[in-house]
């Protein structure tokens, strides 16, 4: 009894084992991705900031001794961001008054991602210097002086600007020397990185962002603040009542 001849080309052709190749390639891609992830991901923030700084990159508090019922205002800003400059130059006087009157508890997080966009290091240097200024108790005045002379986006800050702002805020002698060396040494560079991580973790992905009593203020309210700083008290009061 003779068997019919096998049909041609029904058997798989002798070639490379595609499935094996695909498996190896997929495994290599996954391995690279996991290795990069483990290498790049931010460790839990542990750097120590100034005495006025919250742990874990939580930001720098202006008036930690504010009363319990003070409205908590947290501003996330980048010294190189034009809209941050607009906001600061609009509301800085009102913020200073509200802090002096113990009506608000102010916290600042200085972010730095414009450095990579603009290809310089001004945001990081300014943020470090800002934390340095909080050691001398002049951060509120210092940072508004710096924003007043904000260069056009991308031009960057000089150290001279930071020192001048410190002098304007009343530093001299050994205090000024301490500030200058803190600035030059990049004493708080690690804390500045932690602030960036903590801000992203908190869901803050752009600057300026203003959080009042835990709630991000609306774009409309942000525009109002930028246009007319005298609205500061009434805008933040809205968020205070909703608590």
């Amino acid at each position: 009894m003779s068997r019919p001849s096998a049909p041609k080309a029904s058997t798989p052709p002798p070639g490379a084992p595609i499935g094996l190749i695909a498996g190896v390639v997929a495994a290599v891609i996954a391995l690279i991705a996991v290795v990069v992830f483990l290498a790049v991901r931010d460790d839990s923030p542990t750097a120590v900031g100034s005495s006025a700084s919250l742990p874990a990159g939580g930001g720098v508090v202006v008036n930690a001794d504010a009363p319990q019922d003070a409205i908590e205002v947290h501003i996330f800003e980048d010294f190189q961001c034009p809209f941050c400059g607009l906001l600061e130059n609009s509301i800085s006087e009102q913020v200073k008054e509200a802090v002096a009157a113990d009506e608000v508890k102010m916290t600042y997080t200085f972010m730095t991602f414009l450095d990579s966009n603009l290809g310089n290091d001004s945001s990081s240097r300014a943020a470090n210097a800002a934390v340095c200024s909080s050691d001398e108790g002049i951060m509120l005045d210092w940072h508004s002086s710096v924003f007043e002379v904000q260069p056009s986006e991308g031009a960057g800050y000089t150290d001279e600007t930071f020192i001048q702002a410190a002098e304007e805020a009343g530093l001299s002698g050994t205090e000024l020397e301490t500030f200058t060396s803190c600035m030059a040494d990049g004493t708080y560079d690690d804390y500045v990185e932690d602030m960036a991580t903590a801000a992203t973790e908190a869901g803050v992905t752009s600057t300026p962002t203003v959080i009042v009593n835990g709630e991000v203020i609306s774009p409309d309210d942000m525009n109002t603040l930028m246009e007319d700083g005298t609205t500061f008290d009434s805008v933040i009061a809205n968020y205070g009542e909703r608590r």
Binding site: V40, F113, S116, N117, A196, T200, G203, T205, S206
Partner: peptide, 11 residues
């Protein structure tokens, strides 16, 4: 710029 990439996802 992986930090920016993470921020984009967070957004």
């Amino acid at each position: 710029d992986l930090d920016a990439s993470v921020r984009s996802v967070v957004a």
